[in-house]
């Protein structure tokens, strides 16, 4: 199923402290309350811009560098971020995103401008910049991750198989 939403564009090396500051991450386990602070140190208005009708977080290289906090993909999800599109991702964030159900797409984000209307069909492997009328190619997920996503994330994978059943 295709997701259509606006692009909200940021730069390179967005770290997990920017995505959700450590000072909030310890306050509670309530992701809904924490989500209002998503991306706050970089863009204080991220939540109010993205929450109402959803959005794609578009970034440069090395998105999600830094800590292992799973609150990072979780607050983005709770802020109604439909997917993160970046040139490259930091390793732990990438795994955490898949595990928690936040789609992550590696593609040439130089082709996308802030405010562009995007359409993403993960299953079909198609990303369109509707504003520019172009299709943007992206690499498919590694098979093991596709398998975990197909099961509905790591928790569901475990419930289904009673442990790891990846090949």
């Amino acid at each position: 199923m295709a997701i259509t939403a606006k692009a909200f564009k940021y730069g390179d090396d967005i770290n997990t402290d920017y995505i959700i500051s450590g000072k909030y991450k310890f306050k509670s386990a309530d992701m809904e309350a924490m989500a209002v602070h998503a991306m706050e140190d970089l863009d204080p208005h991220y939540y109010e811009k993205v929450k109402p009708s959803g959005g794609f977080l578009v970034a440069g290289s090395n998105f999600g560098m830094g800590s292992s906090r799973e609150q990072a993909p979780l607050v983005l999800i709770h802020a109604n971020t439909r997917a993160v599109l970046a040139k490259t991702f930091a390793r732990i964030f990438y795994r955490n995103a898949i595990n928690t159900g936040l789609p992550v797409v590696e593609c040439d984000t130089d082709l996308i401008d802030d405010g562009d209307e995007l359409e993403l069909d993960l299953a079909a492997g198609v990303l369109r910049d509707v504003t520019k009328g172009i299709e943007i190619p992206f690499a498919p997920l590694p098979p093991v991750m596709a398998q975990l996503l197909a099961d509905g994330g790591l928790v569901e994978h475990f419930k289904k198989h009673g442990g790891f059943a990846v090949s």
């Binding site: 732990i92 955490n96 595990n99 590694p142 790591l154 928790v155 475990f158 442990g163």
Partner: peptide, 20 residues
């Protein structure tokens, strides 16, 4: 190596984890 909480939970439950 560092992992997120869900990967950590899977490892705590099973003693295993997938790696590249």
């Amino acid at each position: 190596t560092g992992v997120g909480s869900t990967d950590g939970a899977a490892a705590m439950a099973s003693g295993k984890l997938w790696f590249k």
